[in-house]
Design a protein around this nucleic acid. Structure first.
Lengths: 222, 222
DNA sequence: GTCTATACGGCGATAGAC
DNA sequence: GTCTATCGCCGTATAGAC
């Protein structure tokens, strides 16, 4: 795998390895792993058919690399946001607010989805796709579960007395709603007659945070 | 398309057309449209490679037929459940309860997913897959939107004064949570250490109804 | 090392022969 | 209603150009 090492690039100008990753990201996010051919990726990236395999060993290796690239960035952002929320609450001598936890969980995704970089928007769709199929469950687990456990622990702190089972089911629903928002299928636009816009990530995620903050707190009040 | 007409079959014994549909349903639900080959479908159904194309014109036609077959059944069930809830409330001279509406929306899905018929369980996963990708948004729209509009209207009645935008976003989150539950990826099982089981549909959907009933009502109380 | 051109065995959907 | 033949595209290995 020595060809797969990250080659530092002089500021800004992307190397061909990144061009391949970008093209693969876009195509995989639109049509899934099986719906994309290595030839299409190569063509979109403007490179030879054999180059993706040279860098990533196989189509599957390419898929993994695409998924991994931004997972690391996203995990760091979310983890940092959570740490900030936890320590600011500690400093104030208060319990962390559920809303702050959910915001730490969701804001980095919201920013990714409303980013100017189309790569981030594609990546959000890709994660949604991966999270919706049992075939790729292992990828979600290995890249995201550690972080998720950290958030669940924080929520348990914020909601003393909550039953673990209720907590996990609530998280399941949160992640379902989040996943559909990331999938950005445009369906809510049509259903709502343009009242709600998948493209308006800040609006979508503001509603998401509010709705689930009330939802989580509500569990403990019943 | 005369070959595609439904040929009535003597009680119970499925014709080859249905064998093809069943096999396609299982495979498509596991690996998506592009991840399945017509040859695999034919082999699983125990028929010649060309038979699926004979019945359904193309691979895409087969996919549509699989999706349509149970959509009709599910739509009828959900619509009937909603009508029952609406008319029983009317008879009692009361407003419909949010919970009854959500139950009408969700119970038929829950029964499908916990059915003895593996075909229904496969179908739930297929719908989840289709609903998670922009590529298939049109299929969701054409098969389900009429029914969804009916549910949204009912919810508007049950929640007087709710802003349409809030209502649609709440529906979006509901359907996201529902979709992930239907996808049955097994991830919540692992995350929760076995406390929550995707296989236990009644438990999953009971939590779903409770959580979202509170969520919808809560919108109007803030 | 980085990359291209090309070749290969295999499987894809499906049209047309039967 | 069934099967077979066809043709194109698939992922990937490899040889060698730069």
């Amino acid at each position: 795998m020595k060809a797969a090492k990250t080659k530092p690039q002089k500021a800004g100008i992307p190397g061909r390895r990144d061009l391949v990753l970008d093209a693969a990201e876009e195509l995989f996010s639109q049509r899934g792993f099986y719906g994309v051919t290595v030839r299409q990726v190569a063509e979109m990236a403007g490179v030879d058919v054999a180059l993706p395999n040279y860098y990533f060993d196989s189509k599957r290796g390419l898929f993994d690399a695409v998924f991994l690239r931004r997972a690391e960035v996203l995990n760091t952002q979310r983890s940092d946001c959570l740490d900030a929320a936890l320590s600011s609450a500690e400093k104030a001598g208060e319990r962390v607010a559920v809303k702050d936890i959910l915001q730490a969980f969701i804001t980095p995704v919201m920013e990714a989805q409303s980013s100017h970089d189309p790569g981030w928007r594609n990546y959000c769709r890709l994660v949604a796709e991966v999270n919706s199929s049992a075939v790729w469950a292992g990828m979600m687990t290995s890249h995201f579960d550690a972080l998720i456990a950290k958030f669940i622990d924080a929520l348990r702190l914020a909601l003393p007395g909550i039953k673990d089972k209720d907590l996990y089911w609530a998280y399941h629903m949160l992640t379902g709603a989040l996943t559909l928002t990331m999938a950005d299928t445009g369906r809510i636009d049509r259903l709502s007659g343009g009242l709600c816009l998948s493209g308006d990530a800040p609006d979508a995620y503001a509603h998401l945070v509010d709705f689930f903050t009330r939802g989580f707190i509500g569990i403990n009040e019943t």
